[in-house]
Amino acid sequence: MTGLFSFLKRFAGNRAALLGAAVLSVILLAAILGPMLYAVDPFDMVGRPFQLPFGKYPLGTDVAGRDLLAGILRGARVSLMIATVATAGAMFCGLLVGAVSGYYGGAVDNVLMAVTDFFLTIPSFVLAVVVVAIFQPTITTVTAAIAVVSWPSVARLVRSEVIAQRDRDYVQACRALGMSNAEIMFLQILPNALPPVVVVASLMIATAILTESGLSFLGLADPNVVSWGYMIGVARSALRTAWWMTAIPGVAILITVLAINLVGEGLNDALNPRMRKR
C-alpha cells in the first residue's frame, strides 16, 4: 500500500502529468457518455453542408451536411477503443514472447528474437496497410493490424527485463520450492518486470491512435463507423473552402495523443524514479 501511495504522490507531483490525466479523463467521459448525451447519428444529414462552427450545430456540418460534433464524439469512442484493444493485444503477444524468450534463453530465445527483429525491420505502417487491404477494413482487422505491428518492441523490452530478473535469488528460491516454470515466469518474474512495460503500453496507445488515424485517412477504415482519421480524409476535398472541417478532427487527435503522452511520461517518472529524465 505504501508503494501505491508513494507512486501516487510522485505522479501527483508532476503538474504536466496531472494536466494530461485531467484532459484524458474528459476525453474518456466524452467518448463514453457523449454519444448518449448528444444523440445525433454521425451519418445523418442533419442540415445544409459547410455550416460554420458555433452556429446551429456546435462544430458545424461537413461536406455532406453531417453533424461534426456527433462525428467527433463517436470518433473518440472508436479511436480510443481500437487503440486500447490493439495495445492490449500487442502487450499480450509481447509479454508472452518476451517472457518465454528471456526466461528460457538459448535456441528458444534465438528463434523468437529472430522473428521479433524481423517484424521490427519491416516498415510497420506499410505492413499495416497491406494487412488491412488484404483482409478488408473492419474494426477487427484494423485493430489486429495495429497489434501485429506493435508487439515486437514490447517483446524486446520484456525479454531484457526478464533476463535481468531470472538469476536473482528469489527466482532460485521459487525453483527450490518446486514452482513450475510457468508459475515463476508469469506470477513471480513478470510483476517485477512490469513498470517499464506499463509506461510503454501507455505510450503505445498514443501511437496506435496515430496509426489508426493514418489508416482511416487512406480509406482503410471500417465503412460503418466514424473515426477522426476518416473525418479528415472526407474533409480534405474541401480544404480550400472549409479548412476548419479538416482542422477540428486533427485537433481532437492532437489533444488526445498529447494527453496520453503526458500521462505516460508521468508514469515513467513515478514508476522508475531512478531513471527520471533530467
Binding site: S213, A247, L258
Partner: peptide
C-alpha cells in the same frame, strides 16, 4: 517538441497547405 510529437503528420501537412499555399 512535446506538441509536434503528438501531431498526426498527414494532418499537419494539410494545415501547412492551408497556411502557406491557400
Amino acid at each position: 517538441a512535446l506538441a509536434f510529437y503528438a501531431v498526426p503528420a498527414f494532418w499537419l501537412g494539410l494545415m501547412l497547405i492551408v497556411l502557406f499555399s491557400i
